[in-house]
């Protein structure tokens, strides 16, 4: 079996400003090249915390555990070092950066990712093509990063970056939230266009609907900072039909026995 793209070993994460509050309480997860994993779970279960911690956000603190990326221990690495190695986080709430145009930002990001400047003609060609795939107008590239973007535009802009940066691991943090059906389909097509036997994808979502367009190999359910269940694509359908309650009840029963 090929070497995992991402391996989380007993990851425990708290909030930097509140070190006493642990959000992720021991997660093990392995994603291999070519696999799409979905991480589902009710609000507040720690999905976004996990995503941000894996990407290296200083807002979160690792209490213990290890993050292996392409076989290398990146636990102590800064977010930018992880990104240059090929990690990508699509933000749930992308931040506005006034005064910085999308095109400038993308050029700088690509330069950092590749370790060298890309010829302008090649860069613009690729940008045009990716914009086209995502049904985005070219004027989009001249706007300031996420500044005044609608919810849907922000999510598309994330996928635009994903398409340009071509990472080895893409973590999509609720990229489906706030999108209407057409936008969701466009975004999903953008993600599918990137699926190769080499990339690993972790889709974090509250709902099953994006998984109608992007079929996952594995579905995990995160509850109170722990993976409560893992299964195939059918697990997502089960949640779609019955909600999280059956799993929560089951978990409650287990905890009762333990206590």
């Amino acid at each position: 079996m090929s070497e995992p793209i991402l391996e989380l070993r007993d990851l425990r994460v708290s909030i930097t400003e509140h070190p006493d509050i642990q959000i992720v309480k021991g997660v093990d997860l392995t994603i291999r090249p070519g696999e799409v994993h979905a991480l589902m779970g009710p609000n507040g279960s720690g999905k976004s915390t996990l995503a941000n911690a894996v990407a290296g956000s200083p807002a979160y603190k690792l209490d213990s555990g290890q993050i292996l990326f392409k076989g290398e221990d990146v636990t102590a690495m800064t977010a930018d070092a992880r990104a240059r190695m090929g990690m990508f986080l699509s933000f749930q709430y992308p931040t506005a950066i006034p005064g910085v145009t999308m095109v400038n930002f993308l050029r700088e990001a690509l330069k950092a990712r590749r370790g060298q400047e890309m010829p302008a003609r090649e860069f613009l060609g690729e940008l045009r093509e990716t914009l086209g795939t995502l049904k985005m107008d070219e004027s989009f590239a001249r706007r300031y990063v996420n500044d005044g973007f609608s919810g849907g535009e922000k999510k598309r802009a994330e996928i635009l970056q994903l398409g340009m940066l071509k990472p080895d691991l893409a973590i999509l943090d609720e990229t489906d939230s706030g999108l209407d059906v057409d936008a969701l389909r466009t975004v999903a097509e953008g993600v599918n266009a990137l699926r190769t036997p080499h990339i690993g994808i972790l889709i974090i979502t509250h709902y099953q609907r994006i998984l109608n367009y992007i079929t996952p190999e594995v579905v995990h359910v995160l509850v109170e900072g722990r993976i409560a269940r893992s299964g195939g694509a059918e697990l997502a359908l089960e949640i779609e039909e019955n909600g999280y309650d059956p799993i929560l009840r089951e978990l409650g029963a287990v905890e009762e026995v333990v206590s």
């Binding site: 990104a83 240059r84 933000f91």
Partner: peptide, 9 residues
């Protein structure tokens, strides 16, 4: 963090 997550120091 957003910019760093895209590879910029």
């Amino acid at each position: 963090f957003y910019l760093q997550s895209r590879g910029l120091s």
